[in-house]
Amino acid sequence: MMMPKSEAAAVVMIGSFNPAIFQPRWLGSQKLIRPEEANNATIRAIQAEVADFSTEWFQFQAVQDRVQMVSSDPRHYPALRDLAGSIFAVLQHTPVQAVGINRQFHYQMPSVEGWHSLGHLLAPKSYWEDLVDKPGMKSLVIVGRRKSDSAGTLNVQVQPSANIEHGVFVQVNVEFQRTDDEMTGAEWVPECLAEHWDNVMDYSETMLEHIVGIHES
């Protein structure tokens, strides 16, 4: 795999949530995280409208229509999947409408020329130069489905990195919608994550290699 400068994985859920329940101590009492992690979490806000805290390896944010869990430590991606699945196995009646599995990378391009070349290939400037002075690619989003597995809607976003000079930001998102009308809660979430997580993680690495390798081909 190509070595990015930094990366993260995230699970994002859209539904109807009670943010106040998502507290480190609650996760600890359910034995979903270690007692030390529950006790030493950095809590920024726990209120009716929002929960925001972090541990050494993940950050948790919840508002009334969205929950997201992020880790920038690749050692703990499987644990992040387990945590997200387990929370909604416990809170199985929580209405969750959509789940997004995300992976993102900041990759340092080997040269300035390569960085420009990638932008020109993804968004050819010749179409714009008649009307736009110094056109540049700010963001590109490709929507589709994975060839390896058609489940979920794929969104691939490519941008100049905001973190590293002459770097590229690549985000892969696969979004799954609740389809089983009999299920009104979150019963489907753990299964969805168990079934698709590894594939999306692997696919994201392949996508990064593909995108940053485009200018060399």
């Binding site: 993260a8 109807s16 599995i101 900041h106 700010k138």
Partner: peptide
């Protein structure tokens, strides 16, 4: 309504970069 998902409210929202 807070429940109706739209194209702009889904999990694809970038975590770091320019929001869609």
């Amino acid at each position: 309504s807070k429940m109706a998902p739209t194209i702009n409210r889904l999990p694809r929202e970038s975590l770091y970069e320019v929001p869609l």
